[in-house]
Design a protein around this nucleic acid. Sequence first.
RNA 1: GGAACAUUAGCUCAGUUGGUUUAGAGCAUUACUUUGACAGAGUAGGGGUCACUGGUUCGAGUCCAGUAUGUUCCACCA
Length: 834
Amino acid sequence: MEISKNFDFKAAENKWYTHWLDQKYFESTPDDREPYTVVIPPPNVTGILHMGHCLNNTIQDILVRRARMMGKNACWVPGTDHASIATEAKVVQMLRERGIQKASLSRNEFLGYAWEWKEKYGGIILQQLKKLGCSLDWNRTSFTMDPDYYNSVIHVFNDLYTKGYIYRGKRMINWDPRAKTALSDEEVIFKEVQGKLYFLKYQLVDADGNKLPLADAGITIATVRPETILGDAAIAVNPNDERFKHLIGSYAVVPLIDRKIPIIGDDYVATDFGSGALKITPAHDMNDNQIGIKHGLAVYDILNEDGTLSNEAQLLIGKDRFEARKEIVVLLEQAGHVVKIEDYVHQVGFSERTDVVVEPRLSLQWWVDMKKIAGPALSAVQDGEINFHPAKFKNLYRHWMENIKDWCISRQLWWGHQIPAWYDAEGRFVVAMNEKDAIEKFSKAYNIDNPQLKQDEDCLDTWFSSWLWPFEVFKGISNPGNKDVSYYYPTQSLVTAPEIIFFWVARMIMAGYEYMGKKPFSDVYFTGIVRDTQGRKMSKQLGNSPDLLEMIDEIGADAVRFGILIASPAGNDLLWDKASNEQGRNFINKLWNALKLIEIWKEKAKANLSAEEVSLASDWPHQWFDARLRASSAEIDQLMAQYKLSEALKTLYSLIWDDFCSWYLEWVKPGFEKPMDQAHLDKVINNFEMLLERLHPFMPFVTEEIYHLLREQQNVDLCVRQLDQTLQPTSSDAQTLKEGEVLKSAITAIRDARVKAQIKNKDAVEIYCTAQEQADWEIIRPLLSKQVNASSFSFTTDAIANSIQLVVGSAKLYIKSEQAIDTSAQRKTIEDEL
RNA sequence: GGAACAUUAGCUCAGUUGGUUUAGAGCAUUACUUUGACAGAGUAGGGGUCACUGGUUCGAGUCCAGUAUGUUCCACCA
């Protein structure tokens, strides 16, 4: 067979991926083998493949391919997440480009466009995963808004509501004024912002209700959001603060709008911050809200849902909050209320999805009482029922679970699972599976015939559907106890990013115990964050995120997989450099050249020579490589069991490059223009196959290609070939490996000597060594007589007594033991002679 | 403010319960080597006060305390 000079990765990637799909290798049905199940963390339906996905899915593919080759029933489920906020934002943007306002559409019209968008663009990322070589079972592709999945989400809502775990309540929530929706605490990202701290003086009111002149008296508060004074309901001071305690019980006046508000005492107020007096705005601050409830204060909601000022603000109505901030400062200055303005660096919450400043806002939302379902999920991780890799995330998880807060699950969006609650005009409601049931329930509950009901406009948080992912992809709720879910659930490994440990991982564990009565997975592998060489996160804004598909096109999926994995220490972020792709490419090239060498040997073996002419007489190199392979395999098994994939790959890399190519192939290499013995060649090919087996999960395309070129006809394809799992080190391996080490150093010494001898034109060199070294050399004496190597060097032992003579070309080298002398000094002398 | 984790060669990292004379690997770098699978290669070499300061010990990269720096998570004082 003609082997091309270089590996044609494009042809191989196309050829093998198509072939694997044709052979249905990745499809899975329950049988009597042990299952190995992985569910993909469903990427956003809007997503495109980036480095994080690349790392994450390469790792999953390695685990799954390896499991498949170890005889397990491997099942890797693909799918996408409807990603309510992200997708809705994309659709709104698309409509805007077409000149359509969302507000002008009905819910159904909007959803029509959204589905249209999803059918057209959604799931691009799944196609991209194919390019990476991911061995997913595409028949099982799921979407969190598939009809069955949708119903299951609704069912779970009903069930939790019935159990009393879900309630509706008016609470402070994080409001995203751009997406016009509530956010959970986890969706808020705090960033440090350079802002201003405004010190504002409020007029005091005397006992008779008269306002005292601002110049004489007043109370100064500090705020970073001066526009919110319009919603002030009180001023609070610390009851122990000597400066202000006499004012408690009196009143002040909100500047510009003349609202009379009480001055109250509360321990919450810090005496050493700002002015020591705190304005209380119950509608727009989490803590103020608590204080407001405690003191029974009025609530003035001065913001509209889009972040503009409401009628209740009385001033600057309709202005955006940031515009209003600027303007109100001018007004306050004119009225003499501004004492001073200081620069101030503080933390401000931003929406994870839209990156706008989040407003704390009081609103009526749906909540899950997390304390009621967190119990089993906490102990499962504590007791090692579920293992985290790396284990450090166990602490983090415990802390969060022990301090868990209720989960706000309603979102003011249309794209998603509509909350299954139906209301009448008076606001009375029932929770039901559908409208028909709702009417029935409502009639019963309130004793009304034919009630006119309207379904809740809001949607459920995306994570309220994805927490069912590990079992609902097998229809664990829509078709309970079916064959697939009983066989493939619980899954084995979950590979995900630590950022979503609370969003997703913790909640999946809770849902798993609640609905399946079993953990959703046994092991969670948290990957690091992919950063650039300067340690910055990959991001669109920085432009440091490479185009993955372009890279795959340039250098091949195998090289990219190698590149990202070799740079990925277990449990740490990885600083990714494009150069590591080149290391991957070089490695592929090395494999390819080994194939070319073997191809030459095949030709030589055809020469059909007599036994005498076949000079390679010793089996020792094979014995040595077998021992080496056994040792490395055991090591790789161990590393893989600990999810140290990067190290496993490094071990393989050095096994192939150093042991196989640099030593083993040299030792079995026939002399120049000498024939090749077929038995030896078969053994070499056999060993190469063993290496390809082990490398295949990491670099599937090049290994499959080489595997098929090695022999004319292969019985099975490499991707489903069964790994020889009996490969364990034997008792004699240690001795064999030791011999190998000594031989390596002997050969190295000879090379050195040869170089030196040639330089000095000497034809014989002596090296003196210690007794220990002499003993080491003795180990290989029997090997030397076997003429281990037929081409570069030859060895004889028939020389001077008590020494080993090495013949290197025309140069002879004697290794002698000289115990009495100082070896380093002696050596130096010899080197000088040379 | 609280916590977790980290700090070993230019870079990225190994270093098992403290014990092989001289602390490892890959990449990068330097010198040399090009008709025999492979210059996308080979060979050889350089490069480290194991963050710092103390302590425990016969012995510390490894254990303890403190300091510094960094990363991440949690909380958040207007």
